[in-house]
Write a protein that binds this DNA or RNA. Structure first.
Length: 425
RNA sequence: GGAGAGAUGGCAGAGCGGUUGAAUGCACCGGUCUUGAAAACCGGCAUACGUUAAUAGCGUAUCCAGGGUUCGAAUCCCUGUCUCUCCGCCA
């Protein structure tokens, strides 16, 4: 949620900034509502004040044994007017909330203005794609050779966009998640969490998934949502709390499955396990002082990169343009890993500074020693990394001509010292 | 799943439907005293929104949440959520 003051005092420039993100702020409607809100709210509060005053004097008169009938008559007239005024105010406030809850965050000034993913900008790259002297297989083919990746069985069990992993491929998937968690907890200062995979609507709204993106989430019969990312439960841990400044920053990480409807992505990445309804991810979340959030974004992006460097996988870092950023983000870096079979870089991590946008929705604040008023914290989240895609990247980048797969050095301790997966022989 | 109890300020804990934003204690902050500290004493100590130049005043809201009764609700009624105790079941 944006600062409502911004919409009152700087409506034009705010609307312009939002337009860069492809969001058209309904300015006229907003201004009309705001003008009416002002009048009605002042009126309602004045009426409320009058009634309270009279009610109190009724109490006094009664205790002194005086006749209260004249006072009752006086207040009787006000009742209806107050009710009307109240309900009108409620309508207006709801209508205004209907606008603010659907309005995305403002982009940071350093974010390039652009339409879509074609306008994202490469910031840096790391590593050199390996030159193969044989035709490379994609992860689907490699999975077949290793008898470890089975889309058909998963489809029989569940439908499309699910994957079944077996044997050493499943083990490597698990090993990757372990490596990531260990790296973040021992090297980067994050505390590990185990979190609920189902959350309520208020939690989904706090981090920005609801109400606008309800179609993207799976919902249970009792109206709980399967988490689309651990960002949702982790970030909401500070909802409705006031932290001491000394407690900041809070660094949290969790390995969870993520569930996404992928509505609107029909026909995209239908082959293989690039885009699934269920995938594992190690997530990083930071709760920081507002002055620190952009430095924290750089650091967090580095934490995600560290995983790829440990796995010795070539990648590039992109800054997303205004038109391609997520709803809650003010600035986002995507990290793309090299996939030789696709001969391109594919997203494996996304790190965002959400500034005070989620904090305002959740009422997550901190108290500075010298400032009386609690202030909103800034929140960040980043994948570190998507485990399924990391598995794909390792399989494809570490493949041999016979379809066997070398185990990256960093991963070997997590796989009982195995140096190669080779079920083909 | 069955039976019962409960939810009040940072914490503990009062609160016959009437001037209660809410007693009291602890914690915390400031002061007096002290060489310093402790103790004692004095004072202060919520959040949001509105109005406003104002982080000044004033107003409104908030005693789990949402409805209702009433001139008036922390207090009464209904629904929901959560917590605790006992029984059952269970990884």
């Amino acid at each position: 949620m944006l600062d409502p003051q911004l919409l009152r005092t700087a409506l034009d420039t705010t609307a312009e900034k939002l337009a860069h993100r492809g969001y058209a702020l309904p300015m006229e409607e907003w201004q009309k509502l705001e003008a009416e809100r002002k009048t009605i709210q002042v009126e309602t509060e004045a009426l409320q004040n009058q009634r309270t005053t009279i009610s109190k004097s009724i109490g006094q008169a009664k205790s002194q044994g005086q006749d209260i009938q004249p006072l009752l008559d006086e207040v009787a007239q006000m009742g209806e007017q107050l009710e009307d005024s109240k309900s009108r105010l409620k309508e207006i406030l709801q209508a205004m909330e209907g606008i603010t809850l659907y309005t995305p965050n403002l982009a940071h000034e350093s974010v390039p203005v652009g339409q879509d993913e074609n306008d994202n900008v490469v910031i840096r790259s790391w590593g050199t794609p390996k030159a193969f002297d044989f035709p490379v297989k994609d992860h689907v083919a490699l999975g077949e050779v290793q008898r470890g990746l089975d889309a058909e069985s998963a489809a029989n069990l569940s439908g499309s966009r699910f994957t079944l992993l077996t044997g050493e491929v499943a083990q490597m998937h698990r090993a990757l998640a372990q490596l990531m968690l260990d790296l973040h907890t021992t090297q980067h200062g994050y505390q590990e969490y185990y979190v609920p995979y189902m959350v309520n609507a208020a939690t989904m709204q706090g981090s920005g998934q609801l109400p606008k993106f309800a179609d993207d989430a799976f919902i249970t019969e009792d109206e709980r949502y399967l988490i689309p990312t651990a960002e949702v439960p982790l970030t909401n841990l500070v909802a409705d709390t006031i932290l001491e400044q000394a407690e900041l920053p809070v660094l949290m990480t969790a390995h969870t499955p993520c569930f996404r409807r992928e509505a609107g992505s029909y026909g995209k990445d239908t082959k293989g396990m690039i885009r699934q309804h269920q995938f594992d991810k190690v997530e990083m979340v930071q709760i920081v002082h507002p002055d620190e959030s952009y430095a924290a974004l750089e650091a967090m992006t580095g934490h995600a990169e560290a995983v790829l460097q440990a796995l010795e996988l070539p990648y590039q870092v992109m800054v997303l343009c205004t038109g391609d950023m997520g709803f809650s983000a003010a600035k986002t870096y995507d990290i793309e890993v090299w996939l030789p079979a696709q001969n391109t870089y594919r997203e494996i991590s996304s790190c965002s500074n959400c500034t005070d946008f989620q904090a305002r929705r959740m009422q997550a604040r901190f108290r500075a020693p010298d400032v009386k008023k609690p202030q909103l914290v800034h929140t960040l989240n980043g994948s570190g990394l998507a485990v399924g895609r990391a598995l794909i990247a390792v399989m494809e980048n570490y493949q041999n001509a016979d379809g066997s797969i070398n185990v990256p050095t960093a991963l070997q301790p997590y796989m009982g010292g195995k140096t190669v997966i080779n079920l083909a022989s």
